[in-house]
Simulated assay, not measured.
Amino acid sequence: MKFLTLIIALVMLAGCSYTPNISTYVQQQPLIEQKPARVSTFLIAGFYPYWEQSKFPPQIAITNNIDVLYHAFVWPDKNGNLFVPKNFENKEIINIAKSKNIKVLLSVGGGNTSQSFSTVLSNKDLFYKFAYQLINFVVKNNYDGVDIDWEFPKNINDEYNLNKFVEFLRQNLGDNYTISIDLPFANYSGRYFDIDFLKNIVNYFVVMTYDYSGSWSRISGYNAPLTSGFCNSHDIQKSIEYWLARGVKPKSMLLGIPFYGRAFNSDEPCQEFNQSFAATYRNILSLLKNEDYQYFWDFMTKTPYLVNKKDKIYYSFDDPSSINAKIRYAFEMNLGGVAIWEITQDIVNNHHTLLPDIAQTVKNNELLN
């Protein structure tokens, strides 16, 4: 007589959540509606600047291929007010993003609009004025959190005041809102970010791994080299290793992906030049059809470039091959995802040309891992 063997599997499911007590301040606290947090294994985040909204409306720019949208930028003015540009329309953006289950973060600061952070955050009255205006704007407009793009703290006082500001946002927004901070790619601008303090408060750190070369450089270099080449002292691998050594947790780190390149009036990399400018991937894509431009692949930096010998112009940029290599590296380093600057720069005929490839590469790597 045969006996059937019964296999009993015990599955234990455990879950916990913790929300810290919200500190009480003299000023009246804004009303906070707590929201459930999304869980994702590898995030695709993208910046959407307000000045591109009219040309590339949210119906075109926002797709299911991203998980987090950074709506850029608002910023503090010298009087501690939250400055919101006239064309900063957000209702449609948030409605479309929410319909696609995309988180939307309000990005504060910017490369050309961070000047008042130091003054405002160092003055108690201006600090609270700005912080409450920011918190109320986030809550009222149904954002999922805040991204702080202060470029960059320049001394120990800035470092301390940034800590206080981030801590204040967390205490008042609670744990169900996302807080993100944008970091430079090297120590020169990154030394006054107190990672030991911030890493316990901040959800994500966007490492801006681009602009390694430009008009400020001595020679025509690479815009976003993954690895070392003939003429770059910094590269993405060194940047990620630097921030890991500083204490940023891998899963909280988003690797920056540029949807633009840099042009130099030289006929190849690593040459002297006197003019340089940025060019969107959309514009560079059109040059690939021009017979005056020749495509090259740099095996050392794992990036492409274009050269026009006749007009003596060289473009360093990213395409699907170089971006795929960066995504594979992000998976190898167990990073939390990638962040794109910015999502309109690859749009041709109302369709993204790079973003679908990124989404597919992420899916492929998730399967492999």
Score class of each variant (00 low, 15 high):
Y260R: 01
V207W: 01
W243P: 05
S286R: 13
R282M: 14
S233T: 13
F197E: 10
N223M: 03
S276V: 04
S215G: 13
A279H: 03
I240E: 00
N232V: 12
F193H: 02
L198H: 01
S286L: 13
L198W: 00
Q275S: 12
F197H: 15
G247N: 11
C270F: 05
V207G: 04
I284F: 04
P225N: 01
D196E: 14
L226M: 05
A263E: 01
Q237N: 09
Y242F: 15
K249P: 02
G229K: 06
D235S: 02
T280Q: 07
N200P: 05
Y242S: 04
F205K: 09
E272Y: 09
F259K: 08
I201S: 01
A245W: 00
E272R: 11
F264R: 09
G229Y: 02
F273H: 08
F259G: 04
S239D: 02
S213P: 07
T209G: 01
E241Y: 00
Y192C: 10
N200V: 07
Q271C: 14
L183T: 06
Y281N: 14
G190C: 04
M253G: 06
E268K: 15
E241F: 00
G229H: 01
K251H: 10
D235F: 00
A245D: 10
N290R: 13
I284Q: 05
A263R: 04
L287T: 14
S228M: 06
L198R: 02
N200R: 07
S276N: 01
N187E: 08
Y212L: 07
S266C: 13
L226Y: 00
N274M: 04
K289P: 12
N265V: 08
P184A: 11
Y192Q: 08
G190T: 05
Q237M: 05
S252F: 04
V248P: 09
A278D: 01
N200S: 12
I240C: 03
M208G: 02
F264Q: 05
F193Y: 09
A245S: 14
F259E: 05
L287M: 14
F185D: 04
L255E: 03
S233K: 10
A186W: 05
A186D: 10
Y192S: 08
W243Y: 14
D194I: 11
R218N: 15
F259W: 08
A279K: 11
S215K: 13
T209D: 06
N203D: 15
Q237G: 01
G214M: 13
H234W: 11
